[in-house]
Every structure is written in structure tokens, then in C-alpha cells.
């Protein structure tokens, strides 16, 4: 298999995940925004390092404008529209390495997204977000049930979980600190119920929280669930576990290990044996920032080790 194939599949995984995450995030934000202030819009833009770009176009920063900016805007490199297009371009170049099911469901998503984007007026953003959510789940399902578990699969998986881990970190980082500016795990006077449930909704884990803890929402538990809970598919631990698994499979296939393997293993171990109390003691913000830097380093190292650059 060519490195360019590995690269296309890796990026297809990343972009698809980015589109899905964005759709989920917008849905959750929209719901909360009905009950709270308009700083929501800037929060989301900030999460993706786009606060300035957004403010330049929409100084008022109303939520509907943000949603348009993040979904259909062709100038915004992180918009759902552009992520889906990039994922589809990567897939198109690798049609030989994908099954018809995966290609057709991804191409179908692109056709729907581009059709909506062509409509100038009367775009139902809620329906758009819903479509993206539904269809990305279909693509993941098609991949899960039809793709050969070979090296190509592992590169798709690396892209998917790196992006997802990064996304969960961004949500926690921005939203947590808006709700708890000092990052303290305990709440002094009452809980912003909508705020916390929104964070959980972003990663589709509100009901999961209740099932796991059978208790009311507490910031420390929210953080624990999102960071350390291995069995939650969007937690950071889960993502790094899957990432490490794929790295091990590739190492077995190729009969060699490199720096990327070491970094993936170290990150996984840290999340696996980490404790939420220690994380808060050291400071949540520093922990998340450090994690993001190390994920960046890992993605760089993966590129170098497998000649993806």
C-alpha cells in the first residue's frame, strides 16, 4: 500500500469526524442558547481558533450567524461543508481501497450537503445538522461492517480517533472554563444545569452520565466521564486506547516500531492509569493543554514515521 493511500484514508477519517463533531456541537449549543446568553457563538468559534475570522464577518456574533458560518460557509476551512468535501475528495482518490457501501454513503452525504449549500435562501440549519449527524453515523456503520481490517483500516482509524480526541479536549477546555472560570471541580452556588448538560450532549453522553453515575450532574464527574472513562466512545481515554490499538496492529504488520508507537503508548497509559483528583490538583486547563500539545506531536510523528507528509 502506498503512503499516499494511507494519508488519504487518515484524512478521510479526520474530516469525517470533524464534520460529525461540529454537527453535534452545534446541535447542543443551539439547544442551550435558547436558554442562555449570546456568548455561546463566540465560544464555539473560539474552540476552533476561528473567533477572529467569525467576528470579522459577523461583529454582532449572533448564534444563527455562527451556525451558518460553521455549517455552510465555504470560506471557513472548518465548516461542515468543507470537511465533508475534503473527506469526499480523499475517499474519491481511494475508491479502490473502499467498499461500495462506504463510498456510496459518503458520496451521498456530499451530494446532500452540496445541494443544501447551493440553496441561497430558506436553509433549515437544524435539518442540515441532523442530516450530517445521521449520515456520518451511516458511513461509520458501513465502514465498521464492510471494510477489510488491513493496514488501510488502521490508518482510517488513526485519523478518526486522533480527531475525536482532539475534539473532546476542545469542548472540555472551552465549555468547562466558561462554566467554572477557575477550573475548580466543585461548585459553590448551584449548578448551571443547562451548561453542563450541554457539554454532555456535545459528545452524546447525557443519558450515559445518568446511567453511569445515577446522580445529579457534577462538574468533576463530567470531566471524569469525558477524560477517563474507557467505555465511553468519545472519551479521551477511549480514543487513545483505540489509537494505540491501531498503532500496535501496524507495528505487528510492519514488524517495526518507532517514535510514534512510543508516544501513542505513553499517552494511552497515562489516561488508563490517571485519576481525576490528580488531574484537578495539577489543574485541568494545564492538563488539557499538555494533552493537546502531545496529540499534535503524535500526529506529526505518525506523519513522519509512515511517510505521510
Amino acid at each position: 500500500m502506498l503512503s499516499s493511500t494511507a494519508k488519504n484514508l487518515y484524512w478521510m477519517g479526520r474530516y469525517l469526524q470533524r464534520a460529525e463533531n461540529m454537527a453535534r456541537l452545534l446541535e447542543a449549543t443551539q439547544r442551550t442558547a435558547l436558554q442562555s446568553s449570546k456568548t455561546e457563538a463566540f465560544d464555539v468559534a473560539e474552540m476552533y481558533g476561528l473567533a477572529e475570522a467569525f467576528e470579522a464577518i459577523h461583529p454582532d456574533g449572533e448564534l444563527p450567524q455562527l451556525i451558518d458560518f460553521m455549517t455552510l460557509n465555504a470560506e471557513n476551512p472548518s465548516s461542515v461543508f468543507n470537511s465533508v468535501r475534503a473527506a469526499r475528495d480523499n475517499a474519491r482518490a481511494e475508491r479502490n481501497n473502499l467498499t461500495t457501501d462506504v463510498w456510496e454513503s459518503l458520496n451521498g452525504l456530499w451530494l446532500e450537503v452540496s445541494a443544501i449549500a447551493r440553496r441561497k435562501r430558506g436553509v433549515d440549519h437544524g435539518a442540515f445538522v441532523e442530516t450530517v449527524k445521521k449520515q456520518t453515523v451511516m458511513i461509520a456503520g458501513a465502514a465498521q461492517s464492510t471494510l477489510l481490517r488491513d493496514q488501510a483500516w488502521n490508518f482510517l482509524s488513526l485519523g478518526t480517533y486522533l480527531e475525536r480526541a482532539d475534539n473532546t479536549i476542545r469542548i472540555l477546555d472551552v465549555k468547562y472554563h466558561r462554566l467554572q472560570p477557575d477550573g475548580a471541580p466543585e461548585v459553590r452556588d448551584g449548578v448551571d444545569y443547562y451548561g453542563w448538560s450541554e457539554i454532555l450532549t456535545c459528545i452524546g453522553a447525557l443519558r450515559t452520565y445518568r446511567r453511569v453515575y445515577r446522580a445529579r450532574i457534577e462538574p468533576r464527574r463530567v470531566a471524569e466521564l469525558m477524560i477517563l472513562r474507557r467505555d465511553l466512545p468519545r472519551s479521551i481515554h477511549h480514543c487513545l486506547w483505540q489509537l494505540d490499538l491501531s498503532m500496535r496492529e501496524l507495528a505487528d504488520l510492519y514488524g517495526s516500531r518507532g517514535e510514534a508507537d512510543r508516544q501513542a503508548g505513553a499517552l494511552h497509559a497515562e489516561l488508563r492509569y490517571g485519576r481525576i483528583d490528580d488531574i484537578f490538583e495539577a489543574g485541568l486547563r494545564d492538563f488539557l493543554e499538555d494533552l493537546r500539545d502531545r496529540l499534535d506531536a503524535l500526529s506529526h510523528e505518525i506523519g513522519r514515521q509512515f511517510l505521510l507528509d
Binding site: 500500500m1 503512503s3 510492519y254 509512515f306 511517510l307
Partner: peptide, 11 residues
Amino acid sequence: EGRVYMRTPRG
């Protein structure tokens, strides 16, 4: 060195 190679994740 005068030989053609293709880039693969394996090397």
C-alpha cells in the same frame, strides 16, 4: 542513487 522507490508506510 539511480533507483526508483515508492513511498509506503512500511518504508
